[in-house]
Nucleic acid binder design. Structure first.
Length: 351
DNA sequence: CACACGTGGTG
DNA sequence: TCACCAAGTGT
């Protein structure tokens, strides 16, 4: 039995969370959870997948639109692929959307619409890796699993003043995080430690003065907090070039393509175009008097910069190039495009 | 293990 | 302007 006077780190963190928990559309706050309210696993799963490498601010509206349009995993599983990809457009990492649908269909078809409630079973589902499996098990099912995301890595590296760089230090950080994971309120605890990293123990200017872990924090004692966690240096981004072709019919219809499932922007709607390379081959989708627009589209992906030239031509009535999509004026929504393609559309529209 | 995979905010 | 960074996963 733990001494009621002595407070350990996880208790301090939970106390802090009880006072500072941020309100989010997918979250059941500590007060409601204490009253027996459990989160909807569908909403926990959807939010966690959206939050992979993505900020809360960027996710909020997407989450609301998704849950308004598809309120259950069965509803999502029954949705056409292009509607889900269109709703995800702009959020990035589009493999998440493809895996989201795969996962929804497995849960609907093989689990009767009820998400599995263990780490091991969750980990087998598409798009659910070690972090997300632990997060769903902890948050949705209150299992004492240890979440290890960028926030927790930073908090643990600082708390224990660990100087070994990521990703090599990941196993050590995971052990440290596991040692702190409590058996009581593990769902609130998982959110507490991530909230701490997101709001107090931030990468650039941590607010150590108001941190609930300021006393035991070894990096703060050593003055090394802003140097941690160390990371192995990243490779420089090369610049690639490309051409895109925007053709419009007199009635307003536009010529687009559905990108292949594999690779960059996989499964997304886009403009037909060249390869993206040092010296892209300028090969329009049909013969016409293509005009090059003034200006260019600049966009940065995870691992390269891209500069696109935009070409335009009238689309002859009756022409429908093989494997391309002719979208009626009213069926085309710019918001269905990934951001780089939307930038090209903006440049063309304002020509 | 290293790399591919988006985007928007921040300093 | 630009590198870094965000509730990572799949290959």
């Amino acid at each position: 039995m733990r001494d009621a006077i002595q407070s350990d780190l996880s208790t301090d963190l939970l106390d802090w969370y009880d006072r500072n928990a941020r309100v989010m559309p997918w979250r059941v706050g500590p007060g409601d959870r204490a009253a027996g309210v459990m989160p909807d696993p569908y909403r926990v799963w959807l939010s966690e997948v959206m939050l992979q490498q993505t900020t809360v601010a960027a996710v909020r509206d997407y989450f609301t639109r998704f849950t308004t349009r598809w309120s259950t995993v069965q509803a999502l599983a029954a949705a056409p692929d292009d509607q889900v990809m269109g709703e995800w457009a702009g959020l990035g990492y589009y493999a998440r959307a493809r895996n989201l649908l795969k996962c929804a269909r497995v849960v609907a078809d093989d689990y009767g619409g009820a998400f599995p409630d263990t780490y091991d079973a969750l980990l087998k589902l598409p798009g659910i890796g070690p972090y997300t499996a632990a997060a769903i098990a902890a948050i949705a099912f209150d299992r004492p699993e240890t979440v290890l995301d960028g926030n927790v890595e930073r908090v643990m590296a600082r708390l224990h003043d660990i100087h070994e760089p990521l990703p090599g230090s990941k196993p050590v950080l995971k052990n440290k995080a596991a040692a702190l994971t409590p058996n009581t309120r593990p769902g609130d605890y998982a959110q507490a430690v991530m909230d701490l990293g997101a709001t107090i123990c931030t990468p650039k200017s941590p607010a150590c003065g108001i941190c609930p872990l300021r006393d035991p924090c070894q990096a703060r004692a050593a003055g090394t907090q802003t140097d941690l966690p160390r990371k192995t240096p990243k490779k420089p981004k090369p610049t690639r070039y490309g051409h895109v072709y925007i053709a419009q019919r007199e009635d307003g219809a536009l010529l687009l393509e559905r990108r292949p499932d594999k690779g960059l922007l996989g499964g997304m709607l886009g403009w037909p175009g060249s390869d993206w390379s040092d010296t892209p081959v300028n090969t329009p989708p049909f013969s016409a008097d293509w005009q090059e627009l003034a200006g260019e589209v600049r966009h940065t992906f995870t691992h390269f910069h891209l500069i696109l030239r935009i070409w335009t031509a009238p689309l002859p009535a009756g022409l429908h190039p093989h494997r391309l999509i002719v979208l009626d004026k009213h069926a085309f929504r710019p918001s269905d495009l990934p951001t780089v393609m939307r930038k090209a559309h903006d440049l063309w529209r304002n020509r």
